[in-house]
C-alpha cells in the first residue's frame, strides 16, 4: 500500500492527474491506457490516500450519493471520504486499505463528470455508436436496452455501452468514448449526429420526442450532477442548448432488427 504511483485520465478537454497507492492505480492505468494521452487544458490534481483510521467499507463507493454545496462535492460512506472542489480544480479521496481499484475508479468518474461539466461538456449515461462516421448517443430509462442496442450495432464502432462524454468543439458537439463501461476500442470520438431515446417496440421507427420529455430524460441520464439542486439549473440549460443543435428522437427498436438502416433513412 505504501508504493505510490501516478496515472492520467484525459478525455477531450478533461484531464485528471492522479497520484495514489500503486496497488489501486495499476489496474486502472492498464484498463484506461487509451485515455492517458496528452493534456490540453490543465489537469486537476487528484490525490488518493489509504487511511487505516477509517471504518472498513461496508459496500462499494458506487453506492454513495454525491452531495454538493458551494461548488464542493463530497462523496462519503463507511471506508471512504471523497471531496471534489470544482472551483479549486482538485479532488482528494481517503479510503480504507480494503477499498478496491473499482472504488477509486468510481471516484475518478465522479470527478471527471464534474470537471467535464465545469468545462462545458456533459458526461452522459448513454451508449455511443458510430454509424457512417457519425456518432449517436442511445439513452433511456434503466433497462431500455442500451447494451442490447450497442450489441445489435455490430459491426459499427461502439464508443461505450454505458457512459459517453459529449464535448463542444468549434460550435459543434462531439461524442467521446470513456473507460467507464464497455467499448470495443475501435474508435474514441465522432461528431455527434443525434440523441436517440430508446423505446422497446415491435416495430422499428424513429419518432419525434416532445422537447419537455427529451429534456427530462436527458437530465435524468446526467450522472452525478442531476442529483444535485446546486448544479441542476445549469444542467438543464446545458441540455436545452445542446438540443438546439443536435436532434433528439425516440428510437423504437426491437432486439432482432438492424435498426441503423431505418435511422439512416430518416436522418440521412
Amino acid at each position: 500500500m505504501r508504493a505510490t504511483a501516478g496515472m492520467r485520465l484525459v478525455i477531450a478537454g478533461t484531464a485528471l492527474e492522479v497520484t495514489g497507492p500503486e496497488v489501486w492505480l495499476a489496474a486502472l492505468r492498464r484498463a484506461w491506457a487509451p485515455w492517458a494521452g496528452n493534456v490540453g487544458l490543465p489537469p486537476w490534481p487528484v490525490s488518493v490516500a489509504a487511511d487505516e483510521t477509517l471504518a472498513e467499507p461496508e459496500s462499494p463507493l458506487f453506492g454513495a450519493m454525491p452531495r454538493s454545496h458551494s461548488g464542493i462535492c463530497t462523496l462519503e460512506s463507511p471506508g471512504f471520504v471523497g471531496r471534489i472542489d470544482a472551483s479549486a480544480g482538485q479532488a482528494h479521496l481517503r479510503a480504507h486499505p480494503q477499498a478496491t481499484s473499482a472504488d477509486v475508479g468510481y471516484f475518478l468518474r465522479v470527478a471527471l463528470a464534474i470537471q467535464a461539466f465545469a468545462r462545458d461538456g456533459i458526461l452522459f449515461h448513454a451508449a455511443g455508436v458510430v454509424y457512417q462516421d457519425r456518432g449517436y448517443a442511445l439513452f433511456g430509462r434503466s433497462g431500455s436496452g442500451k447494451t442490447t442496442a450497442a450489441r445489435l450495432s455490430t459491426p459499427h464502432p461502439v464508443l461505450n455501452d454505458d457512459l459517453v462524454l459529449l464535448w463542444p468543439e468549434m460550435g459543434r458537439w462531439r461524442i467521446y468514448a470513456t473507460p467507464f463501461g464497455r467499448g470495443r476500442g475501435q474508435r474514441l470520438v465522432a461528431p455527434l449526429r443525434g440523441l436517440l431515446y430508446l423505446v422497446k417496440s415491435p416495430e422499428v421507427a424513429l419518432k419525434p420526442l416532445r422537447p419537455s420529455l427529451a429534456l427530462s430524460e436527458l437530465v435524468a441520464n446526467t450522472p452525478v450532477l442531476s442529483a444535485d439542486a446546486d448544479w441542476l439549473p445549469e444542467v438543464m440549460a446545458r441540455w436545452d442548448g445542446l438540443m438546439n443543435r443536435v436532434p433528439v428522437w425516440a428510437l423504437h427498436f426491437r432486439r432482432d432488427v438492424n435498426f441503423w438502416e431505418g435511422i439512416d433513412a430518416e436522418l440521412g
Binding site: 416532445r210 422537447p211 419537455s212 429534456l215 427530462s216 442529483a227 438543464m236 440549460a237 436545452d240
Partner: peptide, 24 residues
C-alpha cells in the same frame, strides 16, 4: 424546497433532484 423547474416549449419540466425523478 430544492425542486428545480425549467420551461420547455409550453410545458414545464419539474425535477426532484434528490429523488432522481421528474414530472412534466
Amino acid at each position: 424546497e430544492g425542486i428545480v423547474t425549467r420551461e420547455s416549449g409550453d410545458e414545464l419540466v419539474v425535477v426532484i433532484p434528490d429523488r432522481a425523478k421528474y414530472v412534466v
